[in-house]
Write a protein that binds this DNA or RNA. Structure first.
Length: 671
DNA sequence: GTAGAGTCGGTTTTT
DNA sequence: CCGACTCTAC
């Protein structure tokens, strides 16, 4: 029906089914549209069964959105069995079936980076977070290049790498002992399995006959290998990407994969999408002019038919507090003047920490806001507490889950006993759970510690037995009652309100388990196995609520907003100083490019003159990227000689704003 | 030995 | 403003 509404390259991209295809899709050029309509085309015209199609994205949110949009094109019967998921959840699904080939049980646990970092800090015997992070990311980069611990040791050519490689080896041993995998393993292990087991490879090649890969420029070596192995010699896939929007090199993404594609698939067809349907010409011109300072992999020029539009606003602020006030003030003035809604605005920033002060400013003015990215539902501490029980029930060898469950709520077993248990387990090559049952260990601890420990183990064993026989929701509810979780929340939280919110989150989880358990006929163990990567509330009714959107630049990729404030455009923040030191300015520039191209109609860039950093006031410089925008497309505010920050309309109401601030002090809510 | 209160130092980006 | 570390009361 809708092929007619597409431009010629879009149509060509959709209708090209006979071999490997790379779509170079500029920002706002309708790439999601191409992917979703191509799925429709594959099924309706290309004779593909939905079961044999996999669309792979990088975030769960993108996957959700894609599925939703395809759902609008076709009914669920036609789409039955289609795979629309992230690399990580595809890997997980595969491994749940094939884990025994790798010496893992199908109930293996998935550790988040927080748990993984803890293991690494144990191995390193450091608590310095910075060191741990560096080692962790080094290990992660090796994994993404498909190098195991042995290969890493061979490759290490400096002291730091040698330390990392040694750590990598014991870290991986520990993971195996826990029957656990980290995020990288979810992609690495399938690749290794495919390389060593032709039969399994064939089985999956047969199942997934057509692949669509979104954000292809963000694939790392490992992910590319997975794609290559799955498509095999047939090379039936569509990769969609934009080299100018590659912003994940720091976690192993390899832009060279775009070039590799041409090399590995000589039949590769390349289609460029250059018409932008999102932004005004001025915004696009600014974006093009910034990105033109980067070397080009593929030549492309974005253009738009949406008119010239307003110049970009660049606002100089005194400090970060002032910056937040200025943005909020300008946002309100703009909203009033243009009769827009809150949901038409987005505030974008480089680091999560920048958001706090803006949250405060928005709250002071009673402006509703919604944070994207940030903390996902399953990362909330109270949810992780409950999930640690579920993980332990599914996999008693999961030591991090064991420790967390055993110590929340506190039941009289502390660090010393845990240390002894850990020492004993390490000596015997056992999990903590197994070690707790051994007599040799039990003789080492006093009765006051042993009793609660044994009670706990019996409790878990009992739950494990019932987990396969009773409905998940009710069982978890009963478990929470048994451990006194609600009371514990109210006890340990300093405000009633905070405890209420947390308990409600837990109840949401229980309700979700119940619903999901009934719908899919899954028991608690099966549910807890999939939960690590699922995001149940992520992206829920976003856009429906009238609220200002707040997001990191990274999390904003793929999204668009009528009016954008890009804050903290300073040397040190954007580009980030670490990146400057590491020679990664080009990636920071792409980040700036991503930020600019989120805006549809208006864009405001802000920077501060001074900023508080580690307790000290530091004078900072505006970002070099501002200087890369053509001056004719910019209106400056707040600088000496430039226009004042506060417009005339605002200046008149100085009294009003004073009253407003007084107002907010008087009716200060109890939090 | 364990648990909770209080203090001090420090910030990239995410599956 | 969050989390790691220290100190003190059971």
């Amino acid at each position: 029906m809708s092929l007619l509404q597409l431009n010629p390259p879009q149509r060509a991209a959709i209708m090209s089914l006979d071999g490997p295809l790379l779509v170079l899709a500029g920002a706002g050029s309708g790439k999601t549209r191409v992917i979703t309509q191509k799925i429709e085309y594959l099924i309706r015209e290309g004779n593909y069964d939905a079961r044999n199609i996999a669309a792979i994205t990088f975030t769960n949110k993108a996957a959700r959105e894609m599925l939703e949009r395809v759902g609008k094109l076709m009914n669920s019967r036609e789409l039955k069995g289609i795979t629309v998921s992230t690399f990580h959840s595809l890997g997980m699904q595969l491994l749940r079936q094939e884990a025994p080939h790798l010496g893992y049980k199908p109930q293996f646990s998935i550790l988040d980076s927080y748990d993984a970092a803890k293991i690494i800090s144990d191995v390193l015997k450091t608590t310095h977070k910075d060191e741990v992070r560096k080692v962790q990311s080094r290990i992660s980069l090796w994994k993404n290049e498909l190098l195991g611990p042995d290969a890493a040791i061979v490759q290490a050519d400096n002291e730091f790498d040698r330390i990392c490689a040694m750590t990598y080896a014991s870290y991986q041993t520990t993971l195996t002992a826990y029957q656990a995998m980290d995020f990288d393993d979810l992609i690495r292990f399938p690749v290794e399995l495919f390389l060593s087991n032709a039969e399994v490879l064939q089985k999956w090649q047969h199942k997934l006959r057509y692949l669509l890969i979104d954000e292809y420029q963000d694939t790392n070596t490992c992910q590319y290998q997975l794609v290559k192995l799955l498509t095999g010699a047939r090379g039936m896939f569509t990769a969609v990407g934009d080299d100018d929007q590659s912003i994940y090199a720091w976690r192993g993404a390899n832009m060279e994969n775009l070039r590799l594609l041409q090399h590995d698939f000589p039949r590769l067809k390349v289609i460029k999408l250059e018409q932008n349907y999102r932004s005004t010409a001025r915004i696009l011109r600014a974006a093009n002019s910034v990105i033109s300072n980067n070397p080009k992999l593929f030549e492309k020029q974005l253009w738009s038919e949406l008119g010239l539009g307003e110049p970009l606003h660049v606002v100089q602020c005194k400090d970060e507090e002032h910056e937040a006030d200025v943005v909020v003030q300008r946002l309100l003035a703009h909203k009033f003047e243009h009769r827009t809604e809150f949901k038409d605005y987005a505030i974008l920033y480089r680091g999560n920490y920048q958001a706090r002060i803006f949250e405060q400013a928005l709250r002071n003015q009673r402006i509703p806001y919604q944070m994207a990215g940030g903390q996902s539902f399953f990362d909330k501490p109270e949810i992780k507490d409950v999930l640690s029980y579920l993980r332990l029930i599914a996999n008693p060898d999961d030591d991090p889950a064991f420790i967390r469950a055993l110590t929340t709520p506190k039941r009289g077993v502390g660090a010393t006993t845990l240390e002894r248990l850990g020492a004993w387990a390490g000596q015997r090559g056992n999990s903590l759970f197994a070690a707790a049952h051994e007599e040799g260990f039990q003789l080492q601890v006093g009765a006051a510690q042993l009793a609660p420990l044994q009670d706990f183990c019996r409790f878990i064993v009992n739950l494990e037995y019932r987990a396969t026989r009773e409905p998940a929701g009710e069982l978890v509810m009963e478990m929470l009652k048994a451990i006194g979780f609600e009371a514990w929340l109210y006890d340990s939280e300093d405000s009633q309100r905070a405890a209420e919110v947390k308990w409600k989150n837990v109840m949401d989880l229980v309700a979700w388990l119940q619903k999901k358990g009934e719908a899919d006929g899954k028991n608690l163990i099966e549910l807890s196995q999939t939960i690590a990567l699922i995001t149940m509330l992520e992206g829920r009714d976003e856009g429906e609520v009238d609220a200002v959107k707040m997001s990191t630049l990274h999390a904003s990729k793929g999204l668009e907003y009528p009016h954008v404030f890009l804050i903290g455009c300073e040397e040190g923040i954007l580009p980030h100083s670490e990146s400057v030191d590491n020679g990664m300015v080009e990636e920071e520039r792409r980040l700036m490019y991503v930020g600019i191209t989120r805006a549809q109609r208006s864009l405001t860039l802000t920077y501060c003159v001074k900023r508080r950093r580690a307790g000290e006031w530091l004078f900072v410089e505006p970002s070099r990227f501002i200087g890369e925008i053509n001056g004719d497309d910019i209106r400056h505010f707040g600088k000496p000689g430039a226009e004042p920050i506060v417009s005339k309309r605002e200046g008149k109401s100085k009294l009003a704003s004073l009253m407003a601030s007084l107002d907010s002090k008087v009716q200060k809510p109890e939090e």
